[in-house]
Design a protein around this nucleic acid. Structure first.
Length: 426
RNA sequence: GCGAUGUUGGUGAAGUGGUUAACACGGUAGAUUGUGGUUCUAUUAUGCGUCGGUUCGACUCCGAUACGUCGCCCCA
């Protein structure tokens, strides 16, 4: 048997309904926030991610799906969405648009070659947002408010927002030096991974779980003390605006994030449900004021986030949230014998065009089995068509819930169903 | 990349080195050839992830591999 590739999954049935429902909520929400929809290629020149996301990040250095195409170009399946959006922003010279900032949202699959586990796939979907062209702390707060609002709309309660500031380039450099000086004499007692982090990206030592309890971690310099005035003010204002938006958050000085491009505000939204597992970061993001320039555009400040769809759905399951969905169909049409099949098809189509959710028998089942099928499909009504009905154009309609039975002339069926089903159908 | 664990029908699953792979649900047909969701009867895996090995013989033992699940790392 041919199996699906490792770390991928098929969507169908209930899961499919759920996904479509969430997608609808997301696009409606983005409309209210007035963001424009972006769609960029799933593969890009590998260089984009090397320069954009950063050589020192795991997702680029050891998790990319890359290939050389027939024209000998080095391509990579996108491991995240921001780099593509920024590339598109630059290539379309959107920094010159009259309307600023550019507020973009995207939704689609991302690819990372990792060991799959709970809440983690090799092909996974992200919904993300980027605001390009402003350094206003209001945009930082707004960015944080989007996932929070989405989670609220979907009914998630057990979530926690964590924020931190990495400062601008200047503050970050000073802090980096301070960290290096702090850890240098004690390198030996740090774990193997941290030794590497020390070389590549010392900030990452801070969120190491292995070394978290060691004493030198307790005394490590704290980023916030190294922020220059400007960065400090920026962070303060972000917090003030979050208060205005009535968003609960926790400042976590050890929140660092794994992608190289972040500056100033960074944040994560965690699932705080008991037993969720280790992949509990539902959403991550922050400001990246140097990225546009790094990729080859002008110096444009920007901020954004990404939400993992699979984790979002897992979180909904964990909180036992069932989304508002109308399960089941309005009418199931049952031809008694083959002679009534064509008429049943005609009736089915007529009702569909009148706005009802309708299905019919495709397998020449007997009436008994068809009633079972109607139950399985959660049909509210069953219409039985036999010789008599077809001849007299008077249909037998049975309410599947109350078991009431009606004889209705064909021309009044739509009226009848409208009345019975009320406003439910659209 | 490292570690743990699993893989039996449409589904949930039991099971043993040896002729017909338990049970339940579901499906199909019938008892009731136009009315169901109760009951009864029959039927429903020549096959136990894949490939190789041990054996007179393996679904059951061994090895490899694929995929699943769960950790680590990292991330959404």
């Amino acid at each position: 048997m041919i199996q699906k590739p490792k770390g991928t999954y098929d969507v169908n049935g209930e899961y499919g309904k759920k996904i479509l429902y969430i997608e609808k909520i997301i696009s409606a929400l983005m409309e209210k926030y007035n963001y424009q929809y972006f769609r960029t290629p799933i593969f890009e020149a590998s260089e984009l991610f090397h320069r954009g996301v950063g050589e020192s990040t795991d997702i680029v250095s050891k998790e990319t799906y890359n290939f050389v195409d027939r024209g000998k170009r080095d391509m990579t399946l996108r491991p995240e969405g921001t780099a593509g959006i920024v590339r598109s922003f630059i290539e379309n010279k959107m920094y010159g648009d009259a309307t600023q900032p550019i507020k973009a949202w995207y939704y689609g699959p991302m690819y990372r070659y990792e060991q799959p586990q709970s809440g983690r796939f090799r092909e996974f979907y992200q919904f993300g947002v980027e605001v390009l062209g402003t350094n206003d702390p209001i945009s930082d707060a707004e960015i944080i408010s989007i996932p929070v609002t989405l989670y609220r709309l979907l009914g998630l309660k057990e979530i926690k927002v964590k924020i931190n500031s990495l400062g601008d380039s200047e503050s970050r450099a000073t802090y980096r030096d301070a960290l290096v000086n702090h850890f240098k004499p004690h390198l030996g007692i740090l774990c193997e991974d941290c030794q590497k982090r020390y070389e590549v990206n010392p900030l990452r030592i801070l969120d190491c779980k292995v070394d978290a309890d060691k004493e030198i971690m307790q005394h490590a310099p704290v980023m916030i003390d190294y922020l220059n005035e400007e960065s400090k003010n920026h962070f303060k204002q972000v917090q003030a605006y979050l208060d205005v938006l009535e968003i609960d958050y926790e400042v976590n000085p050890n929140l660092v994030r794994g992608l190289d491009y972040y500056t100033n505000t960074v944040f994560e939204v965690e699932a705080a449900v008991e037993g969720f597992g280790s992949q509990n970061v539902l959403c991550g993001g922050g400001r990246y004021n140097n990225l546009v320039e790094t990729i080859g555009g002008p110096a444009v400040p920007a901020t954004g986030f990404a939400i993992g769809m699979e984790r979002l759905i897992t979180a909904l399951d964990f909180e036992k949230i069932t989304l508002e969905e109308d399960n089941g169909i309005d009418v199931y049409v049952i031809p008694v014998t083959e002679a009534e099949k064509s008429y049943a098809l005609y009736l089915t189509q007529t009702l569909r065009l009148n706005g009802f959710k309708v299905d019919m028998d495709y397998l020449d089942r007997n009436v008994k089995s068809n009633f079972k099928q109607a139950d399985r499909l959660n049909a509210k009504f069953a219409i039985i068509i036999g010789e008599e009905e077809m001849k007299n154009k008077e249909l037998t309609i049975k309410n599947n819930i109350t078991h009431e039975e009606f004889k209705i002339e064909e021309i009044y069926v739509v009226n009848f169903l409208d009345e019975k089903l009320g406003e439910e159908h659209v």
